[in-house]
Amino acid sequence: MTDDPRRTESRKTGLYDLHVSLGARMVPFAGWDMPVQFPMGVMAEHLHTRAQAGLFDVSHMGQVLVTPRDGNLETAALALESLIPADVLGLPEGRQRYGLFTNDAGGILDDLMFANRGDHFLLVVNAACADQDIAHLQTMEGVVVTPVTDRGLLALQGPLAAEVLARLVPAVADMRFMDSQIHGWDGAELWISRSGYTGEDGFEISVPEARLADFVRALLDQPEVAPIGLGARDSLRLEAGMPLYGHDMDAAVTPAQAALGWSIPKARRTGGARAGGFPGADAVLAELAAGPATTRRGLRPEGRAPIREGVAIYAEAAGGASIGQVSSGGFGPSVGGPVAMARLPADLPEGATVYAELRGKRVPVAIAALPFVTPSYKR
């Protein structure tokens, strides 16, 4: 889960000065000044994250607390289920799930993570959508919606992430994938989930703004850790087959078309008091039951030339109308070749050849399974 640049005002995270001191190339992104790469370079940052541990500043993401007014967490869970087609009520304390906001037509307004914190829920939403998401959440009855404005957010990702973080916060060694816990570090309260957006084991860590730079320096003091920018974050999530909001999904794309139907469990689909009840439920559930005509598919182009967003895809080497277009694409450093995703006919079998139009020529592309790399989460 991430965001696309659509805001015009420029903000700085609490790590801006540190990024600049580390030689980051800063770019505007979703209304924030963010590091796109560090001196190591995008390719090396990507491979370092796959091999050791990469540290990402994701403080531009929105953090939001949803608290029941009556003190009963079920009130907040059912309120969230009126907007999110996920099993919020059944989420145990200390656990986190992925979800979607849908609109009345069944399109996706944003994707998010939500965690049960015992007496409230913590949500993490995309930066570009944060204002709209907060306004959307504030339509719920019986809850208080509180944007978190005094904390930064980090992602520590890679096969050595747990070993590194456990040196500073020993309790994280026992966390499982999608656990969400509160732990202390040098007097600071950290909100930690074992999750991420790279396909690697890792953590997302919410840190009080006043201690953010100190904690980052403590992590960077570990020899396995390197700072990583948005460029490698994008290639890592693409290899992991993870969709990007505003590209692989948007308000005109349904969960089934985005290949995210798995995030809508049986309890919200058929029978029972909690089936449906979210915006666009009739359209979303009917399409899931029947199967979508088009859905997000993986693509492996031949050769070394990447196919990027917007490239048209055809069923034949010549003639015929386009059957879709690339929604995300680039070079996969870990895969050793180009990878891409596109919404294409759902009945195309894996291994089938389609054609991408590059510079007036059609080049063969194979339909491939997602993800392109094997995830290494701690189950």
Rank of each mutant, 00 (worst) to 15 (best):
D3R: 15
D3C: 04
T8I: 05
L15E: 06
L15N: 01
D17L: 05
V20Q: 12
G23W: 11
M26R: 01
F29I: 05
M34G: 08
P39H: 08
V42G: 02
M43K: 13
L47W: 02
L55F: 14
D57I: 11
H60W: 07
G62Q: 04
V64H: 03
L65Y: 08
V66A: 14
T67I: 02
T67A: 03
D70Y: 10
G71E: 04
A79D: 00
A79P: 06
E81T: 00
R95M: 08
R95V: 04
Q96K: 00
Q96L: 15
Y98S: 04
G99R: 03
L100E: 11
D110I: 03
L112I: 01
M113T: 04
V124K: 02
A128H: 14
A130M: 13
Q132F: 07
Q132W: 02
D133H: 11
I134H: 02
L137V: 10
P147Q: 04
G152D: 03
L154W: 11
A155K: 07
G158T: 15
L160P: 03
E163S: 12
V164A: 15
V172K: 01
A173K: 14
D174G: 10
D174K: 15
D186S: 15
G187C: 15
G196S: 12
T198M: 02
G199H: 06
S206I: 05
F215R: 03
F215S: 02
R217M: 15
L219A: 09
L219R: 01
A226S: 03
A226L: 06
P227N: 15
I228A: 09
G229N: 05
G229T: 12
G229C: 10
G231C: 10
D234L: 07
E239D: 01
E239M: 09
M242V: 13
A252Q: 08
A256Q: 11
A259E: 07
A259N: 07
G261Q: 07
K266Q: 05
K266D: 14
K266E: 09
R269K: 08
R274C: 13
V284T: 06
A290S: 13
G303D: 09
A305P: 06
P306Q: 00
I307D: 00
G310H: 01
I313N: 04
E316Q: 10
S322T: 06
F331E: 04
G336F: 12
G336E: 03
G337I: 08
P338K: 13
V339C: 15
V354H: 10
R362I: 10
P364Q: 09
S376W: 01
Y377R: 02
R379H: 06
R379V: 08
